[in-house]
Amino acid sequence: MGRSRVKIRLLGEPREEADTCLRGLLSQGFAADRKSLLPHDIATVAKSDILVVTGQFRPDFHTPANLSRLLGARRERTILFLSNVNPQYYTAFEQAGFLFINVTTDETVRSLAGLIAEVDPHVVYDASKTAAMRASMSDKIAHEVVDLFNRLRADPAAPKLEESKRQQRVMSELIGKSPMSVWIELIQNYHDGTAQHCSLVSGYTLAFARVLGAGEAQTGRLFDAAFFHDVGKAMIPLEILDKTGPLDAAEWEIMKRHVIYSYDILSRDAHTSGEIARVARDHHEYLDGSGYPNGIAAGQIDDITRIITICDIFAALTEKRAYKPPKPFDEAYSILLSMAGTKLDPDLVRLFGKVAEESSGRGWSVASAA
């Protein structure tokens, strides 16, 4: 029977510092979460887990006596990773049985990983394997999507539906093994902007399908629509797709044609014509009729298109491009909220808040859609 995976339990406040540390650990492949430095949370921690007391050092609370009382025998697998500790406390902590203390000013995850290795080197080894697996899977997704668009640029034949099914399997496994925030970080390292965007939209759609309680067949329909929604961009000149500044009016008119190209390409095959082609054509339409290409309004926009539109906008806002940094997830979701009721379905935007929260890697209360 295999050894159960050791988790890193971050204990402490303030929340922002603990969350920053948590995101760093997750991105490096560690199994980690955050708890409060309180008896009821500490009691839930397995004996094999590693505790990390983090946050700003508080001399009135982080005393050797108080931490010894809270952690008991667990201090043998506890790391004190507090910022702004007065060096005069180091000896007292060591005398109290705390053997792993960050005594440097380096408060990066790399420094913390070094201390974790001192506690249990197998944990760092397992994390490195997990990170390598994620990177390999994300590379597989990237290479196949880039290859798809290269083939479409050379010959705009309708892509085979099997490509979407294969990508869904790999992407579902990757997201299943990684928090959304870690998966997004991997995808954002793509060098091809169109591959990055289509993969992000597909991933957000998978996550949204779970939130919506979609069954296997419906999830497959949503993924197919998301994965192929921008195939028409293969027909847009690269100098427009890769432009580092804003598009001018003429360039924007060319860019908008991608939805018509998508519809044309996907309509060439019976497996992608119909719903998949229609979503690709209509995913920039808005409830108030202000979208393109046909300016259709609420009653003419079906639910699957409304879902893909929300995922598409959120991906565009949160992805990293040469011409813009990614927007923070809470800011991106606030933009969706501002569009709810006029351009976007308010009920779907409200439900998408769970995806936005998971994607941030933090806990934050989402507001209600209008």
Rank of each mutant, 00 (worst) to 15 (best):
L200D: 13
A250E: 13
I236Q: 15
L241F: 14
A214M: 13
L200M: 14
V231W: 07
P246V: 06
I236E: 11
E216T: 06
D242C: 13
T244W: 09
F223M: 03
A207L: 05
A207W: 07
N189S: 10
V211Y: 12
H191Q: 14
P246Y: 10
L212T: 08
P237Y: 12
Y204D: 08
K233N: 13
W252V: 03
L238K: 08
A214W: 14
F208S: 09
R210P: 02
D248N: 07
N189D: 15
E216K: 04
V201D: 15
G213A: 09
L241A: 05
A249S: 07
F208I: 03
F208L: 11
A226E: 01
A249W: 08
Y190N: 14
S199C: 12
S199Y: 15
M235P: 00
G245F: 08
G213H: 14
L241I: 12
Y190M: 09
L222H: 05
G232F: 07
R221W: 06
W252D: 11
R210F: 13
K233Y: 15
N189Q: 13
V211N: 07
A214L: 01
T194Q: 11
A225S: 01
E251P: 03
D242Q: 12
A217L: 05
A225Y: 01
T194I: 10
A209Y: 10
H229Y: 01
R221Y: 06
A250I: 05
S199D: 15
F228K: 00
A214V: 08
D248Y: 09
K243D: 09
F227T: 02
A226F: 02
A214I: 06
C198M: 14
A225I: 01
F208G: 11
V231P: 00
G215F: 08
I240R: 15
A250K: 05
A225W: 01
A225N: 03
M235F: 00
F227L: 02
L222W: 10
A249V: 07
K233I: 00
A225T: 04
G220Q: 11
Q196K: 09
V201R: 12
K243C: 15
L222V: 02
P237I: 06
H229A: 05
D248R: 07
F228E: 00
D248F: 11
T219E: 14
